[in-house]
Each structure stands twice: as C-alpha cells, then as structure tokens.
Design a protein around this nucleic acid. Structure first.
Lengths: 259, 259
DNA sequence: CGCCGTCTTGACGAATCTCAAATAAAGTGG
DNA sequence: CCACTTTATTTGAGATTCGTCAAGACGGCG
C-alpha cells in the first residue's frame, strides 16, 4: 500500500530540485497581500506594524497552487524556504532509511511548513497536499535578513519554530503514554479545536486522511482506527460516515484523553 | 514511584520563579569564555568570528552549577533564556495535565536546553540534572538582539531550533513505528554515537537514567527495558552490569533498528 | 549491617496486531 | 453515465507483544 502511494507521486531524484523550484516560480495570478489575508492572525504576519508587513509581503510568493497529492518538498530535498498554508491541508511524512513511513502531522491554513530543513539545509520530511491547496512561499534567506531588521518578524519566526517543538512534544507524549482509544480521542479533539479556531465547525468535519494515515500518525494500524471509530459511534460519542465525522459528545472525548 | 520522585524535588509553586532566577544569578567562580571552551564545535558558538564570539561571551553567564536532581527550569515556569550544557547531563520531562510524566530527552554537553519556552514565554517541560552538572545560561532577549547584529549567531540559533525539531521527529518515528526491541537498540546506538562525537567511548558508558526513565523515554515499562537488556546480553550484543553498559555488537544493534 | 530504591525474573492477561474476507467507495476508460 | 477496476473501510478470529502483578535479588548509603 505504501509502495503504491509512493508510485503515484514518484519522480526521478534528479528532477526534484527542479520541481521544487518550479513550484516556487509558479506565477501568482492574484497578488493577495499579507495585510489583507484572512490568516494574518495565525500566520507569520501576526502583530506586524505596517512597514514590517510591507517588507514581509515583498519576500513572500503568494498563493502558489498545490494540487491534491502533490508534494511541496521532499525528504532529502534542498531547503529554500518556509511555506505558509493559505488554503487546504497537508500531511507531513517522515521516511526512515528502510522505507518505513510515519505521518508526522496534519496541517491547516495559517500553519508554517518546512522548518525541519533549516538546520541541515535539507528537508527531513515531505509535505503532501491532502486536497487542492494554496501556500505562500517565503524565501528563508530573505526572511533571515528581514528578521535582522524587523524585531517583530524575528519574534514571529522564533515563536513559530518553538511552537513546532512544543507541538511535536505533545505528539511524543501521546505516542509514549496513551492507549489507542486515548490517542484517537486526542486526535479528534485536536482537529475539532483547530477547526474551531479557524472559524469552522468544531463538531462536524471531513477527515482528509485515510484510516491508514490516521493510524500512521497515531502509531496504530488502520484496523484499530476503524474499530475504534465504530466503537465510539456505538457508544454515541460521534457519528462516522466514511470520512465525515460528527462529534456528538466532545466532553466525554476530552475526558477520555485525560484518562 | 513517580510520586516519590516528585516529592524529592517538589517546591511550592510560588517559589519557582525565584528559584529559576537564583540559578541564573549564581556567581561563576571561573569565567570560561566560549572562545576557549572545548565545546565550541558543538555549541551556540560554532563558526563565529572573533568579534561575534566576544559579543556572545558578554551575554552568557558561564558555568552555572546544577547539582544532581536539581531542576534547571520547570513546566509552566517563566522562560528567560536558553541553557548550554557544559558538563554533565540532563533529562527533559513532559508533564500532562493529569500528572502523567514522559521523558522527552536525555541531553549531553554542548546541547541547548529550554527552546520550548520561546513561543509561549513559559516552559512546557522541565529539565533535571542527572548528575552534578554545569550549564551556561544565555538570556534570550540579549540573544535575539545579538542575532540581529551578527548573522552567524542568528544562523546558529535557527540551526539549534530546527535541529531540535528534527531530533523530536526521530523520537516520534521511534515511538510510532518501532517494536520495543528496536526502540531499545535505537536508544543505545544513539547514545553510543553521541558519546563518540564528544570524544568518549562509543562502546562502553554509564546510563545516567533508571530503567524506568529509559522506559518512559521509549514508551515502555521498566520491566520491558530490563528484560530486553537481559536478552541482548544473552544474545551477546552487549554486557550490562547495573548502569554500566558495554556494547559488544554495534553492527547487529544497528541492523535491529533498521528492521 | 540493614534499609530503601532499583533491578531482575516469572506467570498471566489485556491490548493491539496480523491475516483474511466481505463490503463500500472512489476513480477510470469506454 | 455505466461497467469495471482499484482503493478504502469494516469486521472477525487468532496470534503476539507488551503490560501487570508479584516476589525476590542486588547494591549503595547511612
């Protein structure tokens, strides 16, 4: 199954840098500025003064389209900059030497992808669009330059990197200490909360990942995920219809997580 | 057991900020500069020109002592800066709302602690010395200021934050996809490698953590860790004598990790 | 020397995985 | 738009891994 998924998006390695660059060059039809972006409360531009905002806009390639299934960057590919999700959603996937895969995260508008590449200059994960999406690309060299001039930009960058560290720690905690039931509950509660913050329904949403991808993220097999969803439904905690989920008892789900 | 460990280091919450600050103020008996530090190849000072090095030295409080069992910072405590380990070792521990603990990492000289606090201004983990140790404290406000002036410092900071992200992803991968056997092998190989890089023996070293702490880090129970160590010994992969470990067959251990 | 925390080992049980088969949903070419 | 193929999901039965409980050994420290 993993193998098949890999085939679908596989390209010769030598072509990767080209592809990456071609995405960045993709001409933006519209020029939506950060200052008018709905996501400026969540994104890199939080709390910037007008002049810093203008500077930021200058180094951002706005609204690059990424089709469902397309890869924004690949494991081992050269790091050039960060990507702010403008629309849609992505998964980030880790690849072990032996080909083993693990979903490291599921990402929504306003979130920043690609920070894993800063340290080594190479990405150590890949980001795949789970639906037709749009990102803003931010050249990292330019961003570092701007961060030296604009303190607010510097702070936002540090905040973003630090929050990624904290986010991953929560996942570590989940994988290290929780039962399958708790992990799935935590996953659903987390999604619910993140949809709520973004102004979407916190009780009804579409899972963009397969059961297998959810399982990979939670350190479980797809059968376990499926069984648990069925059980949660039987217990009246939620309703599932394929990928459409309706959370009926968020309180109990939250309690499950707290053990 | 967790409860007992907690008691040993417990202090009233109100005292925490004071304690944290008192550690920072601890007068340094010697004034060992970054430029002469043996760790300058691993630490914040990597690749700095002479002038940047001098600037960095000015904002670092060098060689603060932390006794075994002491806490460098606590979960929920105010974030003031980063700490570079100069000597000794630390564990970082995550605390869930329900009191559940999980060891997030085991840290050696040259590594930087505390980055989890940048985003929220509060630490979300605690760092405890596993033996008598020394750290250099770096005020984050000053560091940000310096990063705006010295590009090399800025890059080092970003590199450190990004590497922490990558480090945690490896742990996620371990917890999400590996068997108990693989996790322990990976743990030992990782330690071995990190000792090697620092000029210590890569085949013989002392575990500073209890079996329970190792288990917590690996998402396993202490009995499982103990059993696996015994089995590895029986199979001739290593020798264990309490906390002293001698790796006899690093090749096979590495193969175990690769599945 | 004796205590306490740590570690080892065994027996048993529960949670989760594996394998397998049936069903449902999604994608594809005519 | 339909028939067909592929992929995703559900569910069951049995196997396996790891956790739980319990008892005893070890080892450092007062």
């Amino acid at each position: 199954m993993e193998a098949v998924a890999a085939l679908k998006t596989a390209r010769p390695v030598s072509v990767l840098p080209f592809r990456a660059r071609s995405v960045l060059r993709d001409v933006s039809r519209r020029a939506p500025a950060c200052s008018t972006c709905k996501l400026r409360g969540v994104c890199m531009s939080v709390g910037l003064e007008a002049d810093a905002m203008t500077d930021l806009e200058e180094i951002v390639t706005p609204a690059v389209r990424v089709a469902k299934g397309e890869t924004l960057y690949r494991s081992g590919g050269r790091f050039t900059g960060l990507y702010a999700i403008r629309l849609g959603s992505f998964k980030t996937v880790l690849l072990a030497d032996d080909g083993q895969e693990q979903v490291a995260g599921y990402h929504m508008p306003g979130e920043i992808l690609g920070a894993d590449g800063i340290g080594a200059g190479l990405h150590d994960s890949e980001a795949v669009a789970l639906e037709d999406s749009e990102v803003c690309a931010i050249s990292f060299d330019s961003l570092q330059e701007l961060a030296r001039e604009q303190q607010a930009v510097q702070q936002n960058l540090h905040r973003i990197l630090s929050r990624e560290i904290v986010r991953e720690r929560k996942i570590m905690m989940m994988l290290g200490t929780m039962s399958a039931e708790q992990r799935l509950a935590a996953f659903l509660v987390d999604l619910s909360e993140r949809y709520r913050v973004r102004g979407y329904s916190s009780s009804e949403f579409v899972l963009r990942m397969t059961r297998e991808e959810i399982g990979s993220y939670l350190g479980l097999k797809l059968e376990t995920v499926s069984r648990l969803l069925s059980r949660f439904q039987r217990e009246g905690l939620l309703q599932v219809q394929g990928r459409v989920v309706k959370l009926l008892d968020l309180t109990t789900l939250r309690q499950l997580v707290e053990h």
